[in-house]
Nucleic acid binder design. Structure first.
Lengths: 218, 218
DNA sequence: CTGGTTACTAACTAAACAGTTACTTCGGCG
DNA sequence: CGCCGAAGTAACTGTTTAGTTAGTAACCAG
Protein backbone atom coordinates (compact mmCIF):
# COMPACT_ATOMS: atom_id res chain seq x y z
CA UNK A 1 0.00 0.00 0.00
CA UNK A 2 2.07 2.82 1.45
CA UNK A 3 0.13 5.87 0.43
CA UNK A 4 3.54 7.50 0.63
CA UNK A 5 2.83 10.70 2.49
CA UNK A 6 4.09 13.94 1.13
CA UNK A 7 2.58 17.03 2.78
CA UNK A 8 4.36 19.47 0.51
CA UNK A 9 3.30 17.77 -2.67
CA UNK A 10 -0.29 17.48 -1.41
CA UNK A 11 -0.39 21.16 -0.56
CA UNK A 12 0.93 22.05 -4.00
CA UNK A 13 -1.58 19.85 -5.76
CA UNK A 14 -4.39 21.50 -3.86
CA UNK A 15 -3.12 24.97 -4.72
CA UNK A 16 -2.73 24.15 -8.39
CA UNK A 17 -6.18 22.64 -8.69
CA UNK A 18 -7.71 25.45 -6.68
CA UNK A 19 -6.16 28.09 -8.91
CA UNK A 20 -7.61 26.41 -11.98
CA UNK A 21 -11.03 26.11 -10.37
CA UNK A 22 -11.21 29.60 -8.88
CA UNK A 23 -9.84 31.20 -12.03
CA UNK A 24 -12.44 29.40 -14.12
CA UNK A 25 -15.47 29.84 -11.85
CA UNK A 26 -14.74 32.51 -9.29
CA UNK A 27 -15.25 32.08 -5.57
CA UNK A 28 -18.98 31.39 -5.63
CA UNK A 29 -18.93 29.25 -8.75
CA UNK A 30 -16.00 27.13 -7.55
CA UNK A 31 -16.80 23.82 -5.87
CA UNK A 32 -14.70 22.45 -3.06
CA UNK A 33 -15.50 18.90 -4.12
CA UNK A 34 -14.28 19.62 -7.62
CA UNK A 35 -10.97 21.00 -6.33
CA UNK A 36 -10.58 17.85 -4.27
CA UNK A 37 -11.31 15.63 -7.25
CA UNK A 38 -9.02 17.57 -9.63
CA UNK A 39 -6.12 17.44 -7.20
CA UNK A 40 -6.86 13.80 -6.29
CA UNK A 41 -6.70 14.73 -2.65
CA UNK A 42 -9.31 13.90 -0.06
CA UNK A 43 -11.60 16.84 0.57
CA UNK A 44 -10.87 16.69 4.26
CA UNK A 45 -7.26 17.65 3.52
CA UNK A 46 -8.26 21.00 2.05
CA UNK A 47 -9.75 21.82 5.42
CA UNK A 48 -6.73 20.35 7.16
CA UNK A 49 -4.31 22.61 5.30
CA UNK A 50 -6.33 25.74 4.60
CA UNK A 51 -9.16 25.98 7.12
CA UNK A 52 -12.03 26.70 4.78
CA UNK A 53 -12.92 27.63 1.23
CA UNK A 54 -12.31 31.34 1.72
CA UNK A 55 -8.88 30.93 3.27
CA UNK A 56 -7.91 28.64 0.42
CA UNK A 57 -9.08 31.33 -1.99
CA UNK A 58 -6.98 33.92 -0.24
CA UNK A 59 -3.96 31.65 -0.28
CA UNK A 60 -4.31 31.38 -4.06
CA UNK A 61 -4.60 35.13 -4.47
CA UNK A 62 -1.64 35.85 -2.24
CA UNK A 63 0.53 33.44 -4.15
CA UNK A 64 -0.53 34.73 -7.57
CA UNK A 65 0.06 38.35 -6.66
CA UNK A 66 3.43 37.55 -5.10
CA UNK A 67 4.39 35.78 -8.33
CA UNK A 68 3.78 38.91 -10.38
CA UNK A 69 5.07 41.34 -7.79
CA UNK A 70 7.95 42.50 -9.95
CA UNK A 71 6.28 42.76 -13.32
CA UNK A 72 6.35 46.56 -13.42
CA UNK A 73 9.92 46.79 -12.20
CA UNK A 74 11.07 44.17 -14.65
CA UNK A 75 9.67 46.16 -17.56
CA UNK A 76 12.05 48.16 -19.77
CA UNK A 77 12.20 51.92 -19.38
CA UNK A 78 11.33 52.72 -22.96
CA UNK A 79 7.53 52.99 -23.19
CA UNK A 80 7.21 50.99 -26.42
CA UNK A 81 9.36 48.17 -25.13
CA UNK A 82 7.58 48.35 -21.78
CA UNK A 83 4.14 47.96 -23.34
CA UNK A 84 5.04 45.03 -25.54
CA UNK A 85 6.84 43.44 -22.62
CA UNK A 86 3.85 43.81 -20.32
CA UNK A 87 1.53 42.59 -23.01
CA UNK A 88 3.60 39.48 -23.64
CA UNK A 89 4.04 38.62 -19.99
CA UNK A 90 0.43 39.15 -18.97
CA UNK A 91 -0.87 37.44 -22.05
CA UNK A 92 0.73 34.21 -20.89
CA UNK A 93 -0.83 34.32 -17.46
CA UNK A 94 -4.52 34.39 -18.08
CA UNK A 95 -5.21 33.09 -14.58
CA UNK A 96 -3.60 36.17 -13.10
CA UNK A 97 -5.76 38.50 -15.15
CA UNK A 98 -8.88 36.53 -14.32
CA UNK A 99 -8.14 36.60 -10.61
CA UNK A 100 -7.71 40.37 -10.83
CA UNK A 101 -11.06 40.51 -12.55
CA UNK A 102 -12.86 38.35 -10.01
CA UNK A 103 -11.36 40.55 -7.33
CA UNK A 104 -12.67 43.67 -9.06
CA UNK A 105 -16.18 42.27 -9.17
CA UNK A 106 -16.06 41.14 -5.57
CA UNK A 107 -14.51 44.10 -3.79
CA UNK A 108 -15.13 46.99 -6.19
CA UNK A 109 -12.72 49.72 -5.25
CA UNK A 110 -12.58 48.55 -1.65
CA UNK A 111 -9.60 47.20 0.27
CA UNK A 112 -7.78 44.31 -1.29
CA UNK A 113 -5.46 41.56 -0.17
CA UNK A 114 -1.82 42.65 0.25
CA UNK A 115 -2.95 46.24 -0.08
CA UNK A 116 0.29 47.90 1.00
CA UNK A 117 2.63 45.67 -1.00
CA UNK A 118 0.57 46.18 -4.13
CA UNK A 119 0.37 49.91 -3.66
CA UNK A 120 4.14 49.92 -3.26
CA UNK A 121 4.47 48.12 -6.56
CA UNK A 122 2.60 50.89 -8.32
CA UNK A 123 4.50 53.61 -6.51
CA UNK A 124 7.60 52.16 -8.09
CA UNK A 125 5.82 52.02 -11.43
CA UNK A 126 4.92 55.69 -11.19
CA UNK A 127 8.52 56.48 -10.25
CA UNK A 128 9.60 54.66 -13.36
CA UNK A 129 7.29 56.75 -15.53
CA UNK A 130 8.58 59.92 -13.90
CA UNK A 131 12.13 58.83 -14.62
CA UNK A 132 11.22 58.27 -18.26
CA UNK A 133 9.68 61.73 -18.26
CA UNK A 134 12.79 63.38 -16.91
CA UNK A 135 14.84 61.50 -19.52
CA UNK A 136 12.59 62.87 -22.23
CA UNK A 137 11.28 59.46 -23.22
CA UNK A 138 7.76 60.54 -22.34
CA UNK A 139 6.31 64.07 -22.32
CA UNK A 140 6.25 65.73 -18.93
CA UNK A 141 2.92 67.46 -19.36
CA UNK A 142 0.93 64.43 -18.33
CA UNK A 143 -0.07 62.92 -15.01
CA UNK A 144 2.20 59.88 -14.53
CA UNK A 145 -0.46 58.06 -12.49
CA UNK A 146 -3.04 58.32 -15.22
CA UNK A 147 -0.47 57.39 -17.82
CA UNK A 148 0.69 54.31 -15.95
CA UNK A 149 -2.87 53.20 -15.44
CA UNK A 150 -3.50 53.61 -19.14
CA UNK A 151 -0.43 51.61 -20.12
CA UNK A 152 -1.70 48.79 -17.97
CA UNK A 153 -5.21 49.20 -19.38
CA UNK A 154 -4.02 48.99 -22.94
CA UNK A 155 -1.96 45.86 -22.37
CA UNK A 156 -4.53 44.10 -20.21
CA UNK A 157 -7.73 44.88 -22.02
CA UNK A 158 -7.86 42.14 -24.66
CA UNK A 159 -7.78 39.47 -21.96
CA UNK A 160 -10.02 41.48 -19.68
CA UNK A 161 -12.93 41.53 -22.13
CA UNK A 162 -11.93 38.91 -24.69
CA UNK A 163 -15.43 38.67 -26.08
CA UNK A 164 -15.35 42.36 -26.93
CA UNK A 165 -11.88 42.06 -28.42
CA UNK A 166 -13.20 39.33 -30.66
CA UNK A 167 -16.35 41.22 -31.62
CA UNK A 168 -14.30 44.26 -32.62
CA UNK A 169 -11.37 42.65 -34.39
CA UNK A 170 -12.91 39.37 -35.54
CA UNK A 171 -10.18 37.37 -33.80
CA UNK A 172 -10.00 36.01 -30.25
CA UNK A 173 -7.09 37.48 -28.27
CA UNK A 174 -5.63 33.99 -27.93
CA UNK A 175 -5.10 33.88 -31.69
CA UNK A 176 -1.52 34.46 -32.79
CA UNK A 177 -2.68 36.82 -35.56
CA UNK A 178 -4.41 38.94 -32.96
CA UNK A 179 -1.24 38.91 -30.95
CA UNK A 180 0.87 40.14 -33.85
CA UNK A 181 -1.53 42.95 -34.74
CA UNK A 182 -1.70 44.02 -31.15
CA UNK A 183 2.05 44.28 -30.84
CA UNK A 184 2.24 46.35 -34.03
CA UNK A 185 -0.43 48.61 -32.64
CA UNK A 186 1.27 48.97 -29.26
CA UNK A 187 4.45 50.08 -30.96
CA UNK A 188 2.51 52.63 -32.99
CA UNK A 189 0.87 53.87 -29.80
CA UNK A 190 4.19 54.16 -28.00
CA UNK A 191 5.53 56.34 -30.79
CA UNK A 192 2.53 58.58 -30.40
CA UNK A 193 2.82 58.75 -26.64
CA UNK A 194 6.50 59.40 -26.53
CA UNK A 195 6.01 62.31 -28.85
CA UNK A 196 9.01 61.74 -31.02
CA UNK A 197 7.00 61.80 -34.20
CA UNK A 198 6.42 65.39 -34.93
CA UNK A 199 9.42 66.93 -33.38
CA UNK A 200 12.86 65.76 -32.45
CA UNK A 201 12.98 63.25 -29.60
CA UNK A 202 14.05 65.99 -27.24
CA UNK A 203 12.07 67.26 -24.34
CA UNK A 204 8.49 67.57 -25.26
CA UNK A 205 7.39 69.54 -22.23
CA UNK A 206 7.66 73.11 -23.35
CA UNK A 207 6.09 72.77 -26.74
CA UNK A 208 2.97 70.97 -25.72
CA UNK A 209 2.46 72.69 -22.41
CA UNK A 210 -0.09 75.12 -23.72
CA UNK A 211 -2.34 72.39 -25.02
CA UNK A 212 -2.96 70.48 -21.89
CA UNK A 213 -2.91 72.46 -18.69
CA UNK A 214 -2.34 70.00 -15.96
CA UNK A 215 -2.21 70.00 -12.26
CA UNK A 216 0.09 67.43 -10.82
CA UNK A 217 -1.47 64.93 -8.51
CA UNK A 218 -0.84 65.11 -4.84
CA UNK B 1 -57.89 42.73 -0.09
CA UNK B 2 -57.50 43.55 -3.72
CA UNK B 3 -53.94 42.54 -4.43
CA UNK B 4 -54.48 44.74 -7.47
CA UNK B 5 -52.79 42.82 -10.27
CA UNK B 6 -50.31 44.50 -12.50
CA UNK B 7 -48.33 42.09 -14.65
CA UNK B 8 -46.24 44.78 -16.30
CA UNK B 9 -45.23 46.40 -13.06
CA UNK B 10 -44.40 43.04 -11.51
CA UNK B 11 -42.22 42.08 -14.46
CA UNK B 12 -40.40 45.38 -14.24
CA UNK B 13 -39.81 45.05 -10.53
CA UNK B 14 -38.34 41.62 -11.04
CA UNK B 15 -36.05 42.87 -13.81
CA UNK B 16 -34.86 45.82 -11.76
CA UNK B 17 -34.13 43.74 -8.69
CA UNK B 18 -32.51 41.02 -10.78
CA UNK B 19 -30.20 43.50 -12.48
CA UNK B 20 -29.06 44.81 -9.11
CA UNK B 21 -28.51 41.31 -7.78
CA UNK B 22 -26.77 39.85 -10.84
CA UNK B 23 -24.63 42.93 -11.28
CA UNK B 24 -23.54 42.75 -7.65
CA UNK B 25 -23.01 39.01 -7.33
CA UNK B 26 -22.87 37.48 -10.81
CA UNK B 27 -24.89 34.49 -11.92
CA UNK B 28 -23.58 32.01 -9.37
CA UNK B 29 -23.46 34.41 -6.48
CA UNK B 30 -26.95 35.76 -7.10
CA UNK B 31 -29.78 34.26 -5.08
CA UNK B 32 -33.25 33.82 -6.51
CA UNK B 33 -34.80 34.30 -3.09
CA UNK B 34 -33.01 37.59 -2.67
CA UNK B 35 -34.26 38.84 -6.02
CA UNK B 36 -37.77 37.88 -4.93
CA UNK B 37 -37.38 39.68 -1.63
CA UNK B 38 -35.85 42.81 -3.14
CA UNK B 39 -38.60 43.09 -5.72
CA UNK B 40 -41.27 42.22 -3.15
CA UNK B 41 -42.67 39.67 -5.55
CA UNK B 42 -43.42 36.07 -4.73
CA UNK B 43 -40.62 33.82 -5.86
CA UNK B 44 -43.01 31.70 -7.83
CA UNK B 45 -43.63 34.67 -10.12
CA UNK B 46 -40.03 34.76 -11.30
CA UNK B 47 -40.54 31.26 -12.61
CA UNK B 48 -43.93 32.22 -14.00
CA UNK B 49 -42.49 35.06 -16.06
CA UNK B 50 -38.97 33.92 -16.87
CA UNK B 51 -38.80 30.15 -16.62
CA UNK B 52 -35.69 29.76 -14.54
CA UNK B 53 -32.71 31.60 -13.11
CA UNK B 54 -30.68 31.39 -16.28
CA UNK B 55 -33.40 32.71 -18.54
CA UNK B 56 -33.94 35.58 -16.15
CA UNK B 57 -30.22 36.29 -16.32
CA UNK B 58 -30.33 36.31 -20.10
CA UNK B 59 -33.33 38.61 -20.10
CA UNK B 60 -31.34 41.09 -18.00
CA UNK B 61 -28.35 40.90 -20.31
CA UNK B 62 -30.45 41.32 -23.43
CA UNK B 63 -32.13 44.38 -22.01
CA UNK B 64 -28.90 45.98 -20.81
CA UNK B 65 -27.14 45.49 -24.11
CA UNK B 66 -30.11 46.78 -26.06
CA UNK B 67 -30.09 49.88 -23.86
CA UNK B 68 -26.50 50.70 -24.81
CA UNK B 69 -26.80 49.58 -28.42
CA UNK B 70 -26.20 53.04 -29.79
CA UNK B 71 -23.42 54.23 -27.55
CA UNK B 72 -20.74 54.08 -30.23
CA UNK B 73 -22.92 55.69 -32.85
CA UNK B 74 -23.97 58.44 -30.50
CA UNK B 75 -20.36 59.38 -29.84
CA UNK B 76 -18.90 62.45 -31.54
CA UNK B 77 -16.56 62.00 -34.52
CA UNK B 78 -13.65 63.85 -32.98
CA UNK B 79 -11.57 61.35 -31.02
CA UNK B 80 -11.06 63.55 -27.97
CA UNK B 81 -14.71 64.38 -27.69
CA UNK B 82 -15.58 60.75 -28.38
CA UNK B 83 -13.41 59.47 -25.56
CA UNK B 84 -14.68 61.87 -22.96
CA UNK B 85 -18.22 61.20 -24.13
CA UNK B 86 -17.80 57.44 -23.83
CA UNK B 87 -16.11 57.82 -20.49
CA UNK B 88 -18.90 59.95 -19.12
CA UNK B 89 -21.69 57.75 -20.39
CA UNK B 90 -20.18 54.45 -19.29
CA UNK B 91 -19.09 55.85 -15.98
CA UNK B 92 -22.72 56.38 -15.09
CA UNK B 93 -23.77 52.86 -15.89
CA UNK B 94 -21.64 50.70 -13.66
CA UNK B 95 -24.11 47.84 -13.96
CA UNK B 96 -23.50 47.69 -17.69
CA UNK B 97 -19.75 47.45 -17.25
CA UNK B 98 -20.11 44.83 -14.56
CA UNK B 99 -22.40 42.71 -16.69
CA UNK B 100 -19.84 42.88 -19.50
CA UNK B 101 -17.24 41.76 -17.02
CA UNK B 102 -19.28 38.84 -15.67
CA UNK B 103 -19.87 37.83 -19.25
CA UNK B 104 -16.14 37.92 -19.99
CA UNK B 105 -15.40 35.66 -17.06
CA UNK B 106 -18.18 33.26 -17.96
CA UNK B 107 -17.79 32.86 -21.71
CA UNK B 108 -14.20 33.93 -22.34
CA UNK B 109 -13.92 34.74 -26.01
CA UNK B 110 -16.73 32.37 -26.88
CA UNK B 111 -20.11 33.17 -28.39
CA UNK B 112 -22.16 35.78 -26.60
CA UNK B 113 -25.78 36.81 -26.40
CA UNK B 114 -26.96 38.96 -29.31
CA UNK B 115 -23.74 38.13 -31.11
CA UNK B 116 -24.68 39.53 -34.53
CA UNK B 117 -26.26 42.73 -33.29
CA UNK B 118 -23.28 43.49 -31.12
CA UNK B 119 -20.81 42.73 -33.86
CA UNK B 120 -22.79 45.09 -36.08
CA UNK B 121 -22.44 47.79 -33.48
CA UNK B 122 -18.67 47.54 -33.65
CA UNK B 123 -18.64 47.37 -37.44
CA UNK B 124 -20.27 50.78 -37.36
CA UNK B 125 -17.74 51.92 -34.79
CA UNK B 126 -14.88 50.86 -37.00
CA UNK B 127 -16.50 52.64 -39.93
CA UNK B 128 -16.61 55.74 -37.81
CA UNK B 129 -12.90 55.52 -37.06
CA UNK B 130 -12.17 55.03 -40.74
CA UNK B 131 -14.23 58.09 -41.56
CA UNK B 132 -12.23 60.08 -39.01
CA UNK B 133 -9.08 58.77 -40.64
CA UNK B 134 -10.12 59.87 -44.11
CA UNK B 135 -11.00 63.27 -42.68
CA UNK B 136 -7.53 63.51 -41.21
CA UNK B 137 -8.75 63.57 -37.63
CA UNK B 138 -6.79 60.40 -36.94
CA UNK B 139 -3.67 59.14 -38.69
CA UNK B 140 -4.28 56.55 -41.39
CA UNK B 141 -1.27 54.39 -40.60
CA UNK B 142 -3.02 52.48 -37.84
CA UNK B 143 -5.41 49.54 -37.75
CA UNK B 144 -8.86 51.01 -37.02
CA UNK B 145 -9.97 47.84 -35.22
CA UNK B 146 -7.11 47.96 -32.78
CA UNK B 147 -7.58 51.66 -32.31
CA UNK B 148 -11.30 51.37 -31.60
CA UNK B 149 -10.66 48.59 -29.12
CA UNK B 150 -8.10 50.76 -27.40
CA UNK B 151 -10.42 53.75 -27.18
CA UNK B 152 -12.94 51.52 -25.46
CA UNK B 153 -10.24 50.05 -23.23
CA UNK B 154 -9.05 53.43 -22.11
CA UNK B 155 -12.52 54.70 -21.25
CA UNK B 156 -13.69 51.49 -19.59
CA UNK B 157 -10.67 50.47 -17.61
CA UNK B 158 -11.11 52.46 -14.38
CA UNK B 159 -14.46 50.79 -13.76
CA UNK B 160 -13.23 47.45 -15.02
CA UNK B 161 -10.51 47.17 -12.37
CA UNK B 162 -11.44 49.88 -9.87
CA UNK B 163 -9.19 48.43 -7.21
CA UNK B 164 -6.19 48.83 -9.49
CA UNK B 165 -7.26 52.32 -10.47
CA UNK B 166 -7.34 53.19 -6.78
CA UNK B 167 -4.01 51.54 -6.00
CA UNK B 168 -2.33 53.45 -8.81
CA UNK B 169 -3.90 56.87 -8.43
CA UNK B 170 -4.85 56.87 -4.77
CA UNK B 171 -8.46 57.68 -5.59
CA UNK B 172 -11.39 55.38 -6.33
CA UNK B 173 -12.81 55.91 -9.84
CA UNK B 174 -16.11 56.93 -8.31
CA UNK B 175 -14.44 59.99 -6.80
CA UNK B 176 -15.12 63.22 -8.64
CA UNK B 177 -11.45 64.22 -8.43
CA UNK B 178 -10.52 61.01 -10.18
CA UNK B 179 -13.11 61.79 -12.78
CA UNK B 180 -11.71 65.22 -13.48
CA UNK B 181 -8.15 64.00 -13.78
CA UNK B 182 -9.20 61.23 -16.08
CA UNK B 183 -10.98 63.63 -18.42
CA UNK B 184 -7.91 65.88 -18.54
CA UNK B 185 -5.81 62.84 -19.34
CA UNK B 186 -8.17 61.61 -22.05
CA UNK B 187 -7.98 64.96 -23.78
CA UNK B 188 -4.19 64.86 -23.61
CA UNK B 189 -4.25 61.35 -25.06
CA UNK B 190 -6.57 62.38 -27.88
CA UNK B 191 -4.18 65.15 -28.85
CA UNK B 192 -1.40 62.61 -29.03
CA UNK B 193 -3.44 60.14 -31.04
CA UNK B 194 -4.77 62.62 -33.54
CA UNK B 195 -1.21 63.51 -34.35
CA UNK B 196 -1.13 67.24 -34.78
CA UNK B 197 0.67 67.88 -31.56
CA UNK B 198 3.26 70.47 -32.34
CA UNK B 199 2.33 73.42 -34.52
CA UNK B 200 -0.51 71.48 -35.94
CA UNK B 201 -1.66 72.62 -39.35
CA UNK B 202 -5.25 72.25 -38.37
CA UNK B 203 -7.87 71.94 -35.83
CA UNK B 204 -6.32 69.74 -33.25
CA UNK B 205 -5.47 72.35 -30.70
CA UNK B 206 -8.09 74.69 -29.55
CA UNK B 207 -11.27 73.40 -31.12
CA UNK B 208 -11.25 70.12 -29.35
CA UNK B 209 -9.97 71.55 -26.12
CA UNK B 210 -13.36 72.80 -25.21
CA UNK B 211 -15.07 69.54 -25.91
CA UNK B 212 -18.33 69.87 -27.72
CA UNK B 213 -20.88 68.23 -25.46
CA UNK B 214 -22.21 65.30 -27.38
CA UNK B 215 -22.76 66.23 -30.93
CA UNK B 216 -24.89 63.34 -32.09
CA UNK B 217 -23.80 61.89 -35.35
CA UNK B 218 -25.22 59.21 -37.52
C1' DC C 1 -73.35 35.03 -13.43
C1' DT C 2 -70.09 31.62 -15.06
C1' DG C 3 -66.09 29.37 -16.50
C1' DG C 4 -61.61 29.68 -17.85
C1' DT C 5 -57.29 31.96 -17.98
C1' DT C 6 -53.82 34.65 -15.83
C1' DA C 7 -51.78 36.69 -11.51
C1' DC C 8 -50.46 35.60 -7.26
C1' DT C 9 -49.30 33.09 -2.48
C1' DA C 10 -47.46 29.89 1.08
C1' DA C 11 -45.36 25.83 1.98
C1' DC C 12 -42.79 22.15 0.33
C1' DT C 13 -38.88 19.12 -1.84
C1' DA C 14 -34.88 17.16 -3.84
C1' DA C 15 -30.33 18.12 -4.75
C1' DA C 16 -26.10 20.37 -3.97
C1' DC C 17 -23.10 22.21 -1.01
C1' DA C 18 -19.51 23.52 2.67
C1' DG C 19 -17.97 21.72 6.43
C1' DT C 20 -17.49 17.48 10.15
C1' DT C 21 -17.15 13.15 12.52
C1' DA C 22 -14.90 9.30 13.46
C1' DC C 23 -11.65 6.57 12.24
C1' DT C 24 -7.07 4.43 10.10
C1' DT C 25 -2.20 4.69 8.72
C1' DC C 26 2.26 6.46 8.58
C1' DG C 27 6.66 8.29 10.32
C1' DG C 28 9.75 9.72 13.53
C1' DC C 29 11.66 10.11 18.22
C1' DG C 30 12.23 8.88 23.18
C1' DC D 1 9.29 -0.86 20.58
C1' DG D 2 5.65 2.02 21.74
C1' DC D 3 3.31 6.10 21.33
C1' DC D 4 1.98 10.53 19.66
C1' DG D 5 1.08 13.87 16.32
C1' DA D 6 0.46 14.62 11.54
C1' DA D 7 -1.37 12.75 7.01
C1' DG D 8 -4.92 10.56 5.14
C1' DT D 9 -9.82 8.30 4.20
C1' DA D 10 -14.93 7.44 3.84
C1' DA D 11 -19.20 8.47 5.08
C1' DC D 12 -22.14 11.70 7.17
C1' DT D 13 -24.87 16.21 8.38
C1' DG D 14 -27.18 20.69 8.55
C1' DT D 15 -28.15 24.26 5.58
C1' DT D 16 -28.90 26.61 1.61
C1' DT D 17 -30.60 26.60 -2.91
C1' DA D 18 -33.25 26.38 -7.29
C1' DG D 19 -37.26 24.85 -8.53
C1' DT D 20 -42.49 22.80 -7.50
C1' DT D 21 -46.92 21.66 -5.72
C1' DA D 22 -51.21 22.86 -4.86
C1' DG D 23 -54.11 25.98 -4.27
C1' DT D 24 -56.63 30.95 -4.02
C1' DA D 25 -58.07 35.47 -6.02
C1' DA D 26 -58.67 38.74 -9.65
C1' DC D 27 -59.93 39.68 -14.31
C1' DC D 28 -62.63 39.21 -18.44
C1' DA D 29 -65.23 37.12 -22.42
C1' DG D 30 -69.53 35.20 -23.41
Amino acid sequence: MSVSRDPHRTRERILTAALAEFSAKGFHGARVDRIARRSRVNKRMLYHYFGDKEQLYRAILRRKFAERADFLEAAPDDPGAAMTYMYRVLHRDVDFIRMLEWEALEVGSGRVLAETERRQLFVKGVAKVKRAQSQGLIPSDVDPHQLLMTLVAVTLFPQLLPQMARLITGLPPSDSRFHRKRVVFLRWLAERLSGSIVKAPGRAGRDTAQLAPLRRTA
